[in-house]
């Protein structure tokens, strides 16, 4: 029963799968993201209250959404690292942490730029904004901790523990707008209810999220491949692949 699970952990097997997936992820991601963004920027109607400044939502929500889901994926990989000692899980955490950092930064930046014309301030220490800033520091901490420890195995374990400790921040980000008084409004996209957004705005937003998801998939694949190449450079299969000139 666990056989497929261990096969999944084989770097060689992953390398091949990633090679096949990547063109689709890249093309699909770029096209869908471009459609969503252009639709949102030029064709979606303006908001009755905020006018055109709300168009920032078409990148603010996707980056914020991805920043959190990437962290959840990292936490799952951290459990796999600690329990099954699967190398590929650790490779994933190290490969995507910088992507998560950039996405979190973009979510904070676009939020700040959006806050100025709508709320009247770039920044406020409310629960949502602060917990999102903590997420940025968590990503930074994961990257720094990994660099600080030279031994691969101890680094993997230390990083996995840090990722798991930080995962409590994710529900705090999500529910901060409901548990406490915040300046940030509650979520527009809800899991169980109808989204509180007109469909002419909602469809481009969902497209942007999907596009960015696919693009993240491509980034994860290529960065994991890099990490695998560095780690497995002395193995036979890497040697055969590299010498065959396949990319």
């Amino acid at each position: 029963m666990w056989q497929w699970f261990h096969k999944l952990g084989s770097p060689k097997w992953f390398f091949g799968i990633a090679n096949r997936l990547m063109p689709w992820l890249l093309a699909g991601g770029l096209i869908i993201l471009a459609v969503g963004v252009v639709w949102g920027l030029a064709f979606a109607p303006k908001d009755y209250l905020q006018g055109n400044s709300y168009r920032i939502i078409f990148i603010h929500v996707p980056t914020a959404f991805l920043a959190q889901s990437v962290y959840i994926m990292m936490a799952v990989a951290a459990v796999v690292t600690l329990v099954w000692r699967m190398k590929l899980a650790d490779v994933f955490v190290k490969a995507v942490a910088p992507v998560g950092l950039v996405l979190t930064f973009l979510a904070l930046f676009t939020g700040a730029v959006w806050g100025k014309p709508t709320w009247g301030t770039w920044w406020i220490w409310d629960a949502r904004l602060t917990s999102m800033l903590i997420l940025l520091f968590l990503y930074g901490g994961v990257i720094a901790l990994d660099r600080a420890i030279n031994d691969e195995k101890s680094a993997a374990r230390a990083v996995a523990v840090l990722v798991l400790v930080g995962v409590v921040n994710i529900p705090i980000i999500k529910y901060s707008v409901e548990w406490w008084n915040t300046l940030h409004q509650p979520a527009t996209l809800k899991l169980t209810e109808k989204p509180s957004m007109s469909s002419e705005m909602l469809i481009p937003l969902l497209l942007s999220i999907l596009g960015l998801y696919l693009l993240f998939g491509w980034l994860a694949c290529i960065r994991m491949q890099t990490e695998i190449l560095v780690r497995e450079q002395r193995t036979k299969w890497v040697r055969e692949m590299v010498m065959a000139g396949r990319n």
């Binding site: 109607p45 908001d47 905020q50 709300y54 709508t118 409004q185 509180s196 957004m197 007109s198 705005m201």
Partner: peptide, 9 residues
């Protein structure tokens, strides 16, 4: 402070 509703005018 604005709410989570977005709609055309």
């Amino acid at each position: 402070k604005h709410d989570e509703n977005y709609m055309p005018p």
